[in-house]
Design a protein around this nucleic acid. Sequence first.
DNA 1: CCTACCGATCGGTAGG
DNA 2: CCTACCGATCGGTAGG
Lengths: 210, 210
Amino acid sequence: MTKADITGERLLRIAAKLFREKGYAQTTVRDIARVARMKPGSLYYHYPSKEKLLESVIDRGFNTILNAVSEAVNSLPPDAPAKQRLRAAVAAHLRANFEYGDYAVPGKQLLDRVPAALRRKYMRARDQYDALWRDLFEAASAEGAFRAESSGGIARMFVLGSLNWTVEWVNPGRKSFESLADAFVDLVYFGLAPREGERQAASPPLARRA
Amino acid sequence: MTKADITGERLLRIAAKLFREKGYAQTTVRDIARVARMKPGSLYYHYPSKEKLLESVIDRGFNTILNAVSEAVNSLPPDAPAKQRLRAAVAAHLRANFEYGDYAVPGKQLLDRVPAALRRKYMRARDQYDALWRDLFEAASAEGAFRAESSGGIARMFVLGSLNWTVEWVNPGRKSFESLADAFVDLVYFGLAPREGERQAASPPLARRA
DNA sequence: CCTACCGATCGGTAGG
DNA sequence: CCTACCGATCGGTAGG
């Protein structure tokens, strides 16, 4: 790895963080250069344009998440039940989005604002990721996990929606990604209601928090 | 309503749409003026700044959603069960976000990028909305709807996350907001698994879509 | 990777 | 609501 490669990687990391925090348009090349302790013009020795920098960030984010989730699923035995595969995928998605959120979040926010030339590329990438999840839910449906066949699509929307939202509130210190994944998948498989015979007595309302 | 009021409202609607489609920073006052068929400088007769225009959009979005959901809940009989109140809130949230998405979406995206002076105001607004949902889920928890007390918080995160995600995929023509709300609330109460005695035989995988 | 710089565009204003 | 305009800032470049 050459010195220029290292600096390029450093610029990518800085740009990813700023794009996530302030948004692409609100981040100037001068912002990035300042954090990197170089002059604004010097940045163009490493990247030909601000837009190319964004593209690299989004590419990195997409590839990282996709690889993390597919590897988690593929490392299971081929005959693993759908529920277990789903659980592994959810946990991997949560962990990857937490660890590489700076790269992954800008892509989510900017998919429809990126120049038309790049949009098709990213639409295809998103479809690729969606297909991975569609397979997982169709396998669960094929195992008879859902009441109606249509539930597979509904379940996918619920899970993907909730997963994307976790970036906003998950505190990884309190619950492990694995236990959170269990909660997600159990919700789809069983709901949150008490099982037969263990329905709790109605308890008094919790004290309102301040 | 004076003529200036009407134009002001028209500018607000145009700005909301552009902010949602292109983002705040990517939208110029010249864009807004062009759509409104006026000169860029004329816009300042109606709004003192681009930022004040954004503030008006976010205010409108927040107030509209909050009012729609609280009215839906409050119009039920005071002794209505928690599940029914939850269902009404979900349906109202879905409908309001679909009908007034141009006003509501910019606020979601920009909460943390708005000038610090306004941020506190919007953090309070969001807390107010969260409190409404917390009450609903705590009431459900108090009725014994969940296995564990902690499920109330988990359920809220699931539902709010999924709800916010629906803006990306819901086609309101195919399913009514009411039936979608039922699916959401049933997922939390019962999951998507078959009930006892109605578990389906495993069916062959669905044909992959093209 | 720096110095020095440019054309374009931006939000906003004065005066009518 | 328009005309005419300004200072600031932006992404980017030439030459070293």
